[in-house]
C-alpha cells in the first residue's frame, strides 16, 4: 500500500460477458489444449468466482458440454498461495485478480494457464512439491530444544521484527520461481538437489540465519547454498522481486546470502 489516497479504478461495464481462454490438460503426459468459456460477471467477481461458475456449468463458447476445469485454491484471500496461475501471461494469485481490472469491457478476454515451472497435475493444477523440498534442503526452521516450558524466546527490536516479519510472510506460492530464468521445469526428483534452489528458499535461509537460535544451522544452510544450484546460480534477472505478491525484498535476500556464502567459503578455506 502507498501512503497516499489511491486513484479510482476504471469503471467496468455492468452485466458484461467475459471470455476465459483456458489452457487445459487431462493429466501428466497428455497433450495440452485450449478451451474458451463465456462467463457473465456479476459485481465483485474475481477469477475464482468465474472458475466456480464454469465448474457448475462447463459449456464452451462453442456450446460444447465438457468436463469442469480443475484448479487449486484455498483461502481466497491471497494468504495461502494455492491458487497461483499464469493470467494474461503473468504469474499471480487468481483469487485477488479482479475481473473489473482485467476485463472491464464487454467481450474482453482473460487467459488462464498453469504455472510452467512445475509438472501439471490436471488443467490449472500443478505439483509444487519441489518448492517445499527446497525448504527442507536449507533447514528452514529454528532448532528448538522441544516443546517443554523453557521460557520466552530472545527479545527483538521493532525494527528487526519488521524486517523478519516481511520475510516470514512468504506463502510458498512459487511466483518468484515461475518468473525466474534460472529455475526450470524439472520432473526428475534426482536432479532437484543440483538445480537452482530458487529465491524463496534463499530468502528463508536469510530469515533463519538472522534468528539467534536459527543461526545454529547457518553453516549447514550456507554449505547447501554455496554448492551446485545454490545462490551463485542466480542470474540477477531480478524478475522474482517484481512478481512477489507479498513484496518480499528477494533480491536483498539474495545479495545478503551471497555475502554470507563468500564469508563462509573464506572461513572454510582457512579452517581447511
Amino acid at each position: 500500500m502507498t501512503a497516499t489516497a489511491q486513484t479510482p479504478r476504471r469503471t467496468a461495464t455492468p452485466d458484461r460477458t467475459v471470455t476465459f481462454r483456458i489452457k487445459r490438460c487431462d493429466g501428466p503426459g497428455k497433450p495440452s489444449y485450449w478451451q474458451d468459456f463465456r462467463v457473465k460477471v456479476p459485481k465483485n467477481s474475481n477469477v475464482i468466482s468465474c472458475l466456480q461458475q464454469i465448474a457448475a456449468e462447463p459449456v464452451t463458447a462453442g456450446g460444447e458440454r465438457v468436463t469442469p476445469v480443475v484448479w487449486d485454491s484455498g483461502c481466497l484471500e491471497e494468504v495461502c498461495g494455492a491458487c497461483t496461475m499464469v493470467i494474461n501471461g503473468k504469474v499471480r494469485q487468481s483469487c485477488s485478480c479482479l475481473i473489473d481490472d482485467y476485463a472491464p469491457a464487454d467481450g474482453d478476454v482473460i487467459t488462464l494457464e498453469p504455472m510452467s515451472k512445475f509438472p501439471v497435475v490436471r488443467d490449472l493444477w500443478v505439483d509444487r512439491s519441489r518448492l517445499f523440498h527446497n525448504l527442507a534442503r536449507i533447514k528452514a526452521w529454528v532448532p528448538i530444544d522441544g516443546t517443554y516450558d523453557l521460557g520466552a524466546g530472545p527479545k527483538e527490536t521493532p525494527a528487526s521484527q519488521a524486517t523478519h516479519y516481511v520475510l516470514s510472510t512468504c506463502m510458498s506460492c512459487g511466483c518468484c520461481l515461475e518468473a525466474c530464468p534460472q529455475f526450470n521445469l524439472e520432473e526428475d526428483r534426482d536432479q532437484w538437489d543440483s538445480s537452482f534452489i530458487g529465491a524463496h528458499a534463499i530468502s528463508q535461509a536469510r530469515l533463519f540465519n538472522a534468528h539467534p537460535t536459527g543461526s545454529e544451522l547457518k553453516p549447514d544452510r550456507l554449505d547447501v547454498l554455496m554448492g551446485e544450484g545454490g545462490v551463485n546460480d542466480c542470474g540477477n534477472a531480478q524478475n522474482c522481486v517484481q512478481v512477489c505478491p507479498k513484496h518480499i525484498p528477494l533480491t536483498e535476500s539474495i545479495a545478503s546470502i551471497g555475502r554470507q556464502v563468500t564469508l563462509h567459503a573464506i572461513s572454510k578455506f582457512f579452517r581447511g
Binding site: L150, G153, E156, P158
Partner: peptide
C-alpha cells in the same frame, strides 16, 4: 506464547523488545 516465541514467530514488539 513462550514456545511460539522460541520457534521464531515474529510477534510485534515494543520499543524495549518485548
Amino acid at each position: 506464547i513462550d514456545l511460539l516465541d522460541r520457534m521464531g514467530v515474529p510477534f510485534n514488539r515494543t520499543g524495549e523488545g518485548n
